[in-house]
Structure formats: structure tokens, C-alpha cells
Amino acid sequence: MTQQAAALQTYNNELAKCIEDLRFKREELNRQIKQEEEEKERLQHDIRLLTEKLSRVNESLAQKQAARATFDQTLAESEAAYTKILESSQSLLSVLKQQTGNLSKVTDVRRKEH
């Protein structure tokens, strides 16, 4: 019976060691799970912050793009009006030169007559 008792003691020791190994592995896995849960929380927090920031940037960008569109329209209208002013100025100058020329001819003719 001592042989059986020794065998039983050996099995008991091995069983206790296996259980201890399982507990150790479980604790190691538990530590890893805890680390990953903390990382997950940090990442979710970062995602929330980045999502909010992205929303603000998108809103700002939309406002600036709308303002740029208004600038573009105003510039196009102003450039078109300026081009018309230049064309009108050129026409006016041409008419004035012609009238000045005509008046000079009339004045020159009258001077010669006197």
C-alpha cells in the first residue's frame, strides 16, 4: 500500500502543479486582457477626440469654401465690370481724340480765314 500511497502522492503533486500552472497562465492572460482593455479605452477616447476635431475642421472648411466661392463670384463680377470700364474709357478716349481733331481743324480753318 505504500507504493500506492507514493503513486497517489506523486499524482497529487503533479495535479497540484498543473492547477498552479493553469492559475499562473490564467493570471497572465487576465493581465493581458486588462492591458488591452485599457488600450481599447485610450483608443476609443482618441477616436472621440479625433472625430470631434474632424467635425470642427469639416465645418470650418465648408465655411471657408463658401467664403471662397463668394470671393470668386465677386472677383469675376468686378473683373467683368472693370473690363467694361476699360472698353468705355477706350471708346471715350477715341471719341475725344476725334472731336479734338475735328475742333482743331475748325479752329485752324477759322484762323486762316482771319
Rank of each mutant, 00 (worst) to 15 (best):
E14R: 11
Y11P: 06
Q99I: 00
A7Y: 12
E87K: 02
V57T: 06
Y82L: 15
N58K: 10
V109R: 15
S104V: 00
S94H: 06
L103A: 11
A81G: 01
N102P: 01
A5P: 02
C18S: 12
N102S: 04
A5T: 05
E113A: 13
S88F: 01
A16P: 10
I19K: 15
E28K: 12
L61K: 03
R111M: 09
Q32T: 12
R31W: 08
A6P: 03
E59A: 03
K64S: 09
V109L: 15
N102K: 02
L49R: 10
V109C: 08
A69L: 11
K64D: 03
R26Q: 14
D72A: 10
E14V: 06
S60P: 01
L8S: 07
Q32H: 12
A16H: 09
M1G: 08
E28S: 11
L54N: 13
T107D: 04
T2N: 04
K17Y: 01
T70K: 05
K105A: 13
Q65T: 09
H114S: 15
E28D: 08
L86A: 04
E28I: 12
V106T: 09
E27C: 07
K112M: 14
E41K: 15
T100W: 02
K53D: 13
Q4Y: 03
E36L: 15
M1S: 01
L86M: 04
T74Q: 11
K112G: 03
E20Y: 10
Q73R: 06
F71T: 03
N13Y: 07
A66F: 05
L61W: 00
D108I: 05
D46T: 05
R110I: 07
L92H: 03
V57Y: 03
I85W: 01
C18L: 15
